[in-house]
Nucleic acid binder design. Structure first.
Lengths: 152, 152
DNA sequence: ATGGATGCAAACCATTTGCAGTGTA
DNA sequence: TACACTGCAAATGGTTTGCATCCAT
């Protein structure tokens, strides 16, 4: 669940450095909020981070945690898990397929790939567990947006 | 964006068949709600489905759309896009990696895979767009839960 | 000192639920 | 006819925002 103190320290330095470079203020709250995510591999959600930080800073507010986490994602020192944060979307395509999401226009296109369908058989995962299904989401610029790039 | 009338019809039959088999009632609303998802490749969200259906059934309510979509996902005739629908989770691991989600205990473990990291170079995608990043989420039973399977 | 950051409370938005009335099998 | 399904309205839960105050630079 937790990582080495050494690696946590590296991540903290990385964070401090990124704030300096971006001109983002290094507040007590932000330091503790980042530390709370950096010290574990548990991929905590906002509430969990909030509860952890509150042990050290009893007056933090949940919205500060939200704002700080968003800032850190922008800085590139944190990432969000799972697919793009949005409402649920539905799909009536029952053939095995995967999704390409255009980061510019948001369109989601199905594509088919035998090699991706075979993911469940990967050997890297022997010690992790038995894979039942694979969800692959590739992000990039769709060909349509790419051909309109001149207009930007 | 839209698919052939023929394929839409096939999907509708598939749906009707699945309802019969499961003893789920075939209401006017459910038919139109399914049709709305089945007729397109646009992966609509609940509100979009609702607005589409309302053109044909002006009295449908949004919660009926939600309930019907959930039923269809259970029936296996629809799937939801993206990763497991949950709150946002944060990750301070900046090395390229992927996620294994245990469907039993919910734990999310990082794993590393060169072959998955290379996904961006796939040729299947030439006509779709240029891939910038790959997000892979594998679901299954983690080794820890698997070894406790006796207790169930 | 000063503009960005915080805390509070209230707003928002997607989704869910209780309940009484309705329609399918 | 009976029981699942629908529609309405209100609740829920995660996340966001307006604003006055505060603090890192």
């Amino acid at each position: 669940m937790s990582i080495t103190a050494e690696e946590t320290r590296e991540r903290m330095e990385h964070f401090v450095e990124a704030c300096r470079r971006a001109g983002v203020k290094l507040t007590h709250q932000r330091l503790e909020i980042f530390r709370e995510v950096a010290r574990t591999t548990a991929h905590p959600d906002a509430i969990t981070v909030y509860r952890g930080v509150r042990r050290r800073i009893p007056t933090v507010s949940l919205d500060t945690v939200y704002r700080a986490l968003a800032t850190m994602v922008e800085l590139g020192v944190l990432s969000t898990l799972g697919s793009s944060r949005e409402k649920v979307r539905f799909d009536a395509n029952t053939r095995p397929h995967h999704h390409f999401v255009c980061v510019r226009c948001g369109i989601i296109r199905d594509f088919y790939s035998d090699s991706l369908d075979q993911l469940a058989t990967g050997e890297e995962l022997e010690d992790v567990g038995r894979v039942e299904s694979a969800h692959v989401e590739l992000r990039g610029i769709c060909s349509n947006c790419a051909s309109q790039a001149i207009q930007d």
